[in-house]
Each structure stands twice: as C-alpha cells, then as structure tokens.
Write a protein that binds this DNA or RNA. Structure first.
Lengths: 94, 94
DNA sequence: TAAACAAGTTTACAATATAAACCAAATTTT
DNA sequence: AAAATTTGGTTTATATTGTAAACTTGTTTA
C-alpha cells in the first residue's frame, strides 16, 4: 500500500540535488549550491551521504586555479531516484 | 526553482496518514495503523503533530465499549497537502 | 601585504522519527 | 471468577537527521 521511501532520498536537499543530477548527470558544487539555495555546509554533508551510498561520484579538481568539485549521478543513483519517484506516486494523487 | 517542502508533511508516516485522509476525509486510529503499518506509538505521535498544526482534528469516542479515536482532515490540512503535492512536482520528473 | 572573497569541510546543536515500555479497560481463557 | 490476553492507545527514551555556524585553505583585489 505505502511502500517504504528510501530515507536517503526523502530529504529536501538531497532530493533537490538528485533531481538536478538526474536531469543533467553532472554538476559542480557551486552550481548545485546556487540552484538549491543551500548553505555550503549543508550541501557538503548531503553530497557526502549520497556519495557514501554510491548514488553519486565526487571528483575534486580545479577550474583555473580554483578548486572545483564535480558531482555525477551513478546508474545506481539513477535507479534509486526513479524508484523513489515511483514509490511516491502511491502517496500522492497525481 | 525548488520550493520549500512543508516539513510537517515531508515525513513518511505523516504523509501516508494525510494521503489516506485526503482521500477518505475521516478514519479511525486502528484503520490508519493497519493501512500504514506503523506502530501505535509512532502513529500516535505523528497524529498529534498533525493535530497541533490544525491539519487534522482528533475525536475520542467509543465504538461499542472500546475506545475509538477518529481523525478527520481539516480544510487547512487539505490545502497543505495539495500544496505539498504541487511543490513536490518541481522536484520530480512526472 | 592586508583585506576580502571563493570553495568547501568540520563540528556542534536542535529537531525528528521511531520503537520500546507502559497503562487502562475490555475480552477471552481456564 | 481469576488469570491471561487483547485492544487502543500514550509517554518516554534513544538514535538519526538536518542544518547552520565556525573554521580552513587558497585566491584575488585594493
């Protein structure tokens, strides 16, 4: 009836991040920060969690001389996101 | 871009409860418990929160000799639920 | 070169979700 | 009719989260 919602995705900020990445595949930290309006700290923590779950990969490099962290959604992450969306449908009148 | 999600509704159990009530308007505790699969304790707490927010009203009566707690969604609750559903649409590819 | 800014990370705290323990009354079993 | 079990919850305790504030490292600007 009400399927369990993946707790990793059932979080406003993580869901926003995954929603962006499901769309564009890859985005860097500052882009995600701007789009979500999150604080750096919060974003950093939530990305770590997504990375720990294997939902995204994180690559640290430089854009010019500035550090630049790029996040990319993984196939596992994609699947999890789609699973979450499907599960939600049982909760909502869509 | 990503609207704030009502934290009261962004909770698996509360959302399930509201989803049921949005559908049937009124339901008693045991029905909600069966449908959601929640423990009594958890359900009790979450209903209290929804009631405190004015999203549901709670009426305690008896069905025969047994106590029976009935929850009813309020217009405010209905609106909040619909608002949440709409907000979510910006997070999901639907 | 000092001040301000960029890009994050770490840490600390407050709020949440959840289950476990508990309670009172009704029902069933022995 | 006592004892045990079930029903219908509530309260309390704990573990997890989400979030912001403070900090770090390096860069640009005045």
């Amino acid at each position: 009836m009400f399927p369990k919602l993946d707790p990793l995705l059932h979080s406003e900020l993580r869901l926003a991040v995954m929603s962006i990445l499901a769309d564009v595949t890859s985005a860097d930290f500052t882009f995600l920060k701007k789009q979500t309006g999150a604080t750096s700290g919060n974003l950093s923590v939530q990305i770590d969690k997504l990375a720990a779950a294997g939902y995204v990969t994180v690559e640290k490099g430089f854009k010019g001389k500035m550090p630049c962290t790029t996040c990319t959604i993984t196939p596992v992450g994609m699947e999890a996101f789609q699973g979450y969306v499907n599960a939600l449908k049982d909760y909502l009148p869509l």
